[in-house]
Design a protein around this nucleic acid. Structure first.
Lengths: 191, 191
DNA sequence: GCGAATTATTAACGCGGTTAACCGATGCCC
DNA sequence: GGGCATCGGTTAACCGCGTTAATAATTCGC
């Protein structure tokens, strides 16, 4: 069987989502030119409070200096608050500022506004099919990854404790961050 | 109706495809660290012969100097051949070298090798559904784009003359490149 | 045939990534 | 408790790819 059509639509779908639903939308809600990584950082911090720089670096999959630069920028824009930790005075505590929170909310709002009319052109059962097929395909791809590859979909902001992607990757940075490491559960679907 | 599940899976699918099926695979087939843009360039040139630098810049959606740099790198790696045009001595003629062609073929081969076992976990009608749903969703997103936005999915390498994405975007760089501009046909499905 | 437009490149710079080096704070161990 | 390794974060130097402005060479149009 030929996979050409599937490969083609897979690529086009992924490009379109990234370009229109993520990059372009981000430009619309932010005066300063943020990168997708920076938005994901913001979403992470909006979602759950205070983080250390090392966690942030791991979450983004970049080196600590790169994470520092990203945080520097977000702090400079007033989107993130940074302070020294009191119990470990080496560490920093990072959290989203009210403006940062507003930016993320605005992004989510516009995204839904953009997707809703698209979704309305599908029947409800088609949307469920699509969601389910997307999930199965992504999981099947991810299952073939060794945990060492360190891939993280940065689902941040779309966290759903029942989602297989969450417990599939033993070393999902986001999981570690949230203190809900699932290493021992890898590959075992919770009942 | 809540779109949360759909938005979540959409993001995860797009991230996973880009990361595992594109970025990671590219690293495996190339010694030099190519970017996805450079791979897409190669695919473009493998597909259809000679191009000018301006076309390449438009195709990638970057400025001419940026395109020059990308081409410089590919030429330096021996993946692309560059020569002066004879009929317009300002212009350059760019084409993939045999090594460039081999790289793209190897990439496609490995991609199929990776996706086939994933596809085998779906029933044939499910794969058709997925392909069709991906296409409809992407098209529906793209339809809301003004031609001025200049988005191009760089479907290069997955060109299918019957595909709506091809004729949907009046200013699809790829279309222009191929001399099959569809501006007048925008939104009108060929019978 | 000459000025205007076009094609591609170079120069100077910005931003985000890297590694190496550094600094203050913590913790361990005798 | 003092000494030393380690840890958390930042800085410095560099690289790659993007930008805009300026330049060189060629072609076009009147």
């Amino acid at each position: 069987m030929s996979l050409f059509g599937l490969l083609r639509q897979t690529h086009i779908f992924a490009s379109t989502v990234r370009e229109i639903l993520e990059t372009k939308l981000l430009r619309e809600v932010s005066d300063a030119p943020l990168t997708l990584a920076q938005l994901q950082l913001l979403k992470l911090m909006v979602r759950d409070g205070e983080h250390h720089l090392t966690e942030v670096a791991h979450f983004l999959g970049v080196s600590p200096p790169a994470a520092t630069k990203n945080i520097d920028k977000l702090v400079g824009l007033g989107l993130v608050h940074r302070e020294r930790s009191t119990d470990d005075r080496r560490a920093t505590l990072l959290s989203a500022s009210p403006e940062g929170q507003r930016l993320v909310e605005e992004y989510e709002r516009k995204k839904e506004l953009l997707v809703r009319p698209v979704a309305e052109r599908f029947r409800p059962e088609e949307l469920e099919q699509l969601t389910s097929l997307l999930e199965r395909f992504a999981i099947s791809l991810l299952e073939r990854e060794t945990p060492e590859s360190g891939f993280c979909a940065r689902c941040c902001g779309y966290v759903d404790s029942g989602c297989p992607v969450n417990w599939l990757l033993g070393d999902c940075a986001f999981q570690k961050l949230r203190g809900t490491a699932v290493k021992e559960k890898k590959g075992v679907r919770p009942s």
